[in-house]
């Protein structure tokens, strides 16, 4: 079936179907939340920026959350050895991201001169890295568990 959304979907039939469900569920939840926000707007004065950010966050968190817990990301990880190897890859990838981000920031933006600026940038970087690592770890763990049951 041809659709403009095809470029966002994986080639594997099962994964493609799952992703279509996640996008559809996300769209319905987004629609419902927008209706709720329209009703709320009659009683409270909602800021446009807040509403737009909330709408974006609801859709992105829902779709990525469902993808992570569904265990369909690491389809070939079914042995303890492969699991440990992939975990190491995720860890190295996170460290690499931290190093590259910090290097690019210091080269192209600026070197923070005050201590609070250092805390600000390091706090942001550590938060992103932890979220990225944890989401990949949960996805890997769920995929491994699912794949083991299918052997």
């Amino acid at each position: 079936m041809k659709s403009w959304i095809s470029f966002l979907l994986p080639n594997d039939e099962y994964k493609e179907k799952k992703m279509l469900y996640f996008f559809s569920e996300g769209a319905i939840i987004l629609l419902l939340s927008l209706i709720v926000m329209i009703i709320c707007n009659k009683y409270f004065n909602l800021d446009v920026e807040t509403v737009l950010l909330a709408a974006l966050a609801i859709f992105l968190f829902y779709v990525s959350g469902r993808y992570i817990v569904s265990g369909i990301e690491y389809t070939d990880i079914s042995t303890e050895r492969a699991y440990r190897k992939e975990l190491r890859v995720i860890f190295i990838r996170t460290i690499r991201f931290v190093v590259i981000f910090m290097a690019l920031y210091l080269i192209f933006i600026n070197v923070p001169t005050r201590l609070d600026k250092w805390f600000e940038i390091l706090g942001l970087l550590i938060s992103i890295s932890v979220v990225w690592f944890l989401s990949s770890y949960i996805s890997l763990k769920r995929s491994y568990k699912k794949n083991k049951e299918l052997l």
Binding site: N11, Y14, K15, T75, D76, L150
Partner: peptide
Amino acid sequence: GVTRQTIGLIEK
């Protein structure tokens, strides 16, 4: 041209 997981799911 599918993933191993898909084959496992079909078999089950």
